[in-house]
Amino acid sequence: MPTVAALLVALLLVWLAINLAKGPAYFTNIAFIGLTNGAVYALVALGYTLVYGILELINFAHGDVFMLGGLISATMISAVFGVTTKSSTGFLVLAIVCTLFIAMIGCGVLNAAIEFVAYRPLRGAPRLAPLITAIGMSFILENIAIGWKGPGYTALPNVLPKGDVFSAGGVTYTWEKLIVVLITAPVLAALVYLVQRTRQGKAMRATAQDRDAAAMMGINVNRTISFTFLIAGGLAGAGGLVYALYFGQLRYDSGYQLGLIAFTAAVLGGIGNLPGAVLGALCIGFIQAFNEGLRWHSPGSDWTESIVFSILILILVFRPEGLLGERTPEGG
């Protein structure tokens, strides 16, 4: 099996190398798209990984929390702040920062509420029970979005500046892509700080390791789990804002597809592993961009989902611990 996997990876690298040789500048531009996609996926994938790490639950509704975050952001930016393409840069920055906080808080509270209503009563039930309610919650959230915005796309004006940050030899990097990274990076940094350095983060890590032992050490497990959902929801809210700004439109089912892609990213990186989720998200972002953008023998966007899900299946079957994860230690 390892030889087959190595062969596949080698073929992939050869394919990338030939594409790179055929058009280095074009290839780089596609890679920038991949980086931007990856940043959005990272925000959502981290939510999956955080929740899985602490509850061993695939929070199926997470993608839909992200989608609601996007809708909240779209509403805030276009309806509440009334940002248009002609707004001044200062006002734009202010509106985006305010929206970021509102979307993060809104989605965080929503996610924690979902945990409280749908998952907490099922602690101790068979493992699949909360997964099933999560699927139910996912459909409920989608229908809330339909009730709020209707089944069509909600669009928002193209407010991000389109100019180039730099442009050299056919390689261009636009402001909108940079802004995505500029929003994502501080949020990620804050998360790392929170988990690594704060008391609450330590409680999260302890609860993830062993819930009973954490409870005996005086950690309020339920509050820690709520807090984790709050953080995960906040990340999804930030992801929603970035998505809405960058892609300009979304609707009730945008979260389902993106959620599954982000979940794949989390699994690829090693579910439960925070740096892994970011790495996995970047990988998936690149894979998607290369598949859809490259010209020499690429399957094309018709097959993106199939490729992503094939990766998911292959990883789960052959390396369930992901790229960075370690094998689950079994009890003696």
Binding site: T133, I135, G136, I140
Partner: peptide, 14 residues
Amino acid sequence: EFGIYGVIIVVVML
């Protein structure tokens, strides 16, 4: 429709 099914799933499971 599917929101209703979602509610059914959650309510039944809980």
